[in-house]
Amino acid sequence: MPRPLAPTYQDRRWELPPDAVVHHGTIDDAVRLLTGRTVTALTGAGVSTDSGIPDYRSPDSPKRAPMTYQQFVADEAFRRHYWARNHVGWQVVHRTEPNAGHRALARLEDRRVLRGVITQNVDLLHEDAGSRHVIDLHGRYDRVICLQCGRVISRAHLAERLDALNPGFVESVLDDGATVADIETAPDADAVIEQTSHFVPAPCEFCGGVLKPEIVYFGENVPRERVQRAYALVDDADALLVAGTSLTVMSGLRFVRHAAKADKPVVIVNRGETRGDPLATIKVDDGVTETLVALADRL
């Protein structure tokens, strides 16, 4: 079992300045502001909670400290621990279906109101719902990359190899009568499993190198080209709609800052405070799914 994980970005706390001005509004206010404008959406884990994937901060979310890139590449024990948990968790995410909020954004794109989606999620539920122009800012759960030769393979193919190396592992971590759907799993497909020391990871079958999910870890940079495409998508719309993210890390907050600096209207939909609230033209403190559905029905 690896030593306790070091603090990461996810453990950092922030508070809005006491003098921060937040312009709270309703769905009606958001509709009035966005009517007649094209929109780019920035989404986070809160968009997928109604699909059964917990976010990072709600009371029902698994208590966890996400592994950093530095830990993953430097320590075989960390890699073993991660792959054991991911071998279960990816199956949970793989079986998840998009919810009405995902489908609402796809409808807005079909009507050319929505230019596209920048998502911090790796679950591919926007694509599954029918969205065509999606930037998966932090990568995607269904692909794996070799850090040595750069080959990319599907997570499903790796699952076959891991099953062969670890027969019966998934069944061994389930309680009597339980299925993988009953395992607590975080948005990055990291399942809450403690006994992992006996798990056997698989090396790259082409060069023997270290395999890593094609997901941006904490401490790892989002590829520059991907960031530039995201900025361009913000620039291409008249307004920015932020949904289901507290904007704790700069990875998403920078696009809110970019839109605000360009004097574009920003609508934030999230239950609870977000780090971007002072930059919002309107903050709607309400359920994400129902708000997105209402916007799709009325815009």
Rank of each mutant, 00 (worst) to 15 (best):
D110Q: 15
P66L: 12
I183T: 00
T40L: 10
V47W: 09
S51N: 08
G25V: 01
L295K: 03
K261W: 08
L299E: 04
R224D: 11
D19T: 14
G272M: 09
D123F: 06
L5K: 12
L16H: 00
Q71S: 13
D175F: 08
D182W: 08
V210I: 15
G150K: 10
D277N: 07
V22A: 04
F169R: 05
A129V: 07
I183G: 01
G139M: 03
Q195H: 14
D285F: 09
A280G: 13
A164V: 04
A41T: 02
E127L: 13
A191K: 09
A202Q: 05
F169E: 05
V227T: 15
T248G: 12
A20I: 13
S246R: 03
V31Q: 08
H198W: 11
H138F: 07
D123P: 10
A104T: 07
L174C: 08
A164C: 07
L295M: 04
G150N: 05
T49K: 00
G52D: 09
Q10H: 14
N86V: 07
W14M: 11
A84Y: 02
L233D: 11
L233H: 07
T185G: 05
V266Y: 02
A106L: 08
S51I: 06
S172N: 09
G252L: 07
K212R: 12
D28V: 13
R57L: 04
D28I: 05
A45V: 04
T291Q: 01
D238K: 11
P98E: 01
R112H: 15
E97D: 10
H24K: 12
C204P: 01
H24Y: 14
D263T: 06
V288W: 03
D50C: 05
V267R: 07
R64W: 13
P98G: 06
Q10L: 14
E205L: 04
D19K: 12
T49F: 00
P17T: 08
A164T: 09
A41K: 00
R226A: 08
E220T: 09
E109N: 11
I193V: 15
I183D: 00
M1R: 07
A74Q: 12
A129K: 00
G219E: 09
R226T: 15
L33M: 12
P167S: 13
A230M: 03
T289Q: 11
M250T: 13
C207K: 09
I135T: 10
P278M: 10
C207Y: 14
E160P: 04
R12F: 11
A294R: 14
R132H: 12
V73S: 10
D55T: 02
G36T: 03
D190S: 09
A294I: 02
G46W: 03
S251F: 02
V293Q: 01
V73Q: 10
L125Q: 02
R151A: 15
L34S: 13
G168A: 10
H126E: 02
G36I: 06
G44W: 02
P18Y: 10
A259F: 03
V170H: 08
I27E: 12
G46N: 02
G276V: 06
L165F: 00
Y231C: 03
R103Y: 03
M67K: 01
V192Y: 12
E127W: 00
R37K: 15
